[in-house]
Amino acid sequence: MSLRFQRLILIIITLVFFCSAVLLILFNTQKNIVFFYTPSELIKNDKNLLEKKVRIGGYVKKNSFLQKPLNNYQFKITDNISELLVFYEGILPDLFKEGQGTVVEGVLNNKKIIIASKVYAKHDENYMPASIKKELEKNNQWKKDYK
């Protein structure tokens, strides 16, 4: 084997070892890298998260959205297993609606209630022309993956 190919193989082996080292670190600190917990993960979590800033993500539960005066909102976040009641005062993003994905940031009152200071809308990876959606609805073919 010529010298240059030995060098090539050495470089590749070094790279593979280095990559696995970094990936191992990342996967073992996974809990600190996630942007949000789901409501179920929150209930399973034994760390004391009360009175601290946390982010919870899930879908806005159908028929749980209430608008009160002066930009006060109340709704439930669900991951279809557990749910969490959210109180929020502020402006909601355009995409926010019932059934849509969302992430809220705020302080937990207890493991069932959060006082949110920020609400983000999370949209999915589906893109579709508005006209096609209308067409699908006309034929009763329209369905969403999530409840």
Partner: peptide, 17 residues
């Protein structure tokens, strides 16, 4: 990491389309 970040962790960014 960039490519698979949306699959490995909970992110606000949506997964690949």
């Amino acid at each position: 990491i960039i490519k698979f970040s949306v699959d490995w962790w909970n992110t606000l960014h949506q997964p690949a389309s």
